[in-house]
């Protein structure tokens, strides 16, 4: 029996005065899924998330979280943790007080010390928010989002400003949430984070959801690249694609073409210089999207 989606957005439009930030956007996030919403600056990601979070009203379209309106906080919030893009904590409260307050209001139950530990903030428990660094504030934000292990966690640029150790521990905590069945919705500018973790990715550009799918589905529409140079006097290689004296070959059949090239080099005794080959990355899809 099919289950209803955790997040269900249907023909969403968001406007600010005359400016249309989100145009006719539809997406679904299924239970237990890790969905990454990516896009260029001003693509409409945050506007979309704000409607999903219930912080902003749509000009038109419908949004349902667990089948409920996002503005119905009493029904939705106990099942949903939100990591906002900007911190939003009172500077005069301590870390422990902030987590305790927001946790108590979330409608979920948890142990504040456990959450501080998960977020790497135990040693800062008694520090006032005003004295935290930017990265520590992000971790505090994360702590309130994961308090009580919500069924849905929305992470808006979660690793911005975090050092590598903090990022690793944050993703480890997210992995544990996923193991417990939580659904994750992520926006980030670090594409490799989405590429490594997301089950599906939605690519937004200028307010619309241009493409959506798994990493493999998104990258297979663009060719992989093999590049190399040849010494003077070398014979013509079996694949074509010269570019300013070097070879830059685009291929949809990376393994076979690379095998053919290496076999040719071996057979002819030619040394391939500056050889590089790799699959299409999400960055390439992104650049292609931005280039129109």
């Amino acid at each position: 029996m099919p289950t209803s989606p955790v997040v269900d957005v249907e023909r969403l439009n968001v406007t600010y005065g005359d400016f249309q930030a989100v145009k006719d956007l539809s997406l679904r996030v299924e239970r237990g899924e890790f969905y990454a919403l990516l896009g260029t600056n001003g693509a409409g990601k945050t506007s979309t998330l704000e409607v999903v979070e219930g912080h902003r009203r749509a000009a038109s379209g419908t949004v349902r979280i667990f089948g409920e309106r996002p503005q119905d906080r009493r029904a939705v919030r106990p099942r949903m943790g939100i990591m906002l893009q900007e911190s939003g904590f009172s500077p005069d409260l301590t870390v422990r007080e902030s987590v305790g307050l927001i946790g108590a209001l979330s409608g979920r139950t948890d142990d504040v010390d456990r959450v501080l530990d998960v977020s790497g903030l135990t040693h800062k428990a008694g520090t006032r928010v005003a004295q935290l660094s930017g990265g520590e504030k992000r971790r505090l934000d994360f702590a309130t989002a994961v308090y009580g292990g919500p069924e849905l966690v929305i992470l808006d640029e979660p690793t911005t400003g975090l050092d590598i150790q903090s990022r690793d521990s944050l993703w480890a905590a997210v992995d544990r949430l996923r193991d417990n069945g939580s659904t994750i919705v992520l926006t980030t500018h670090y594409l490799e984070e989405a590429q490594q973790r997301a089950d599906r990715i939605g690519l937004m550009h200028e307010g619309t959801l241009h493409r959506e799918g798994t990493v493999a589905e998104l990258t297979q529409t663009l060719p992989s690249v093999i590049s190399f140079a040849l010494p003077d006097g070398a014979p013509e290689p079996p694949i074509v694609g010269a570019l300013n004296g070097a070879f830059h070959v685009e291929t949809f059949n990376l393994q076979e073409d690379l095998h053919r090239l290496l076999g040719w080099a071996h057979d002819t005794g030619v040394e391939l210089q500056q050889l590089a080959a790799g699959p299409t990355r999400l960055d390439d899809v992104f650049r292609a999207l931005d280039a129109g």
């Binding site: 219930g54 906080r73 939100i82 911190s87 939003g88 927001i102 209001l105 979330s106 309130t144």
Partner: peptide, 17 residues
């Protein structure tokens, strides 16, 4: 002050009315 600190938005991210 609470609005400027985005604390109001934070509180509205909870189940509080």
């Amino acid at each position: 002050a609470r609005r400027q600190d985005l604390f109001l938005k934070r509180l509205r991210s909870t189940a509080a009315s």
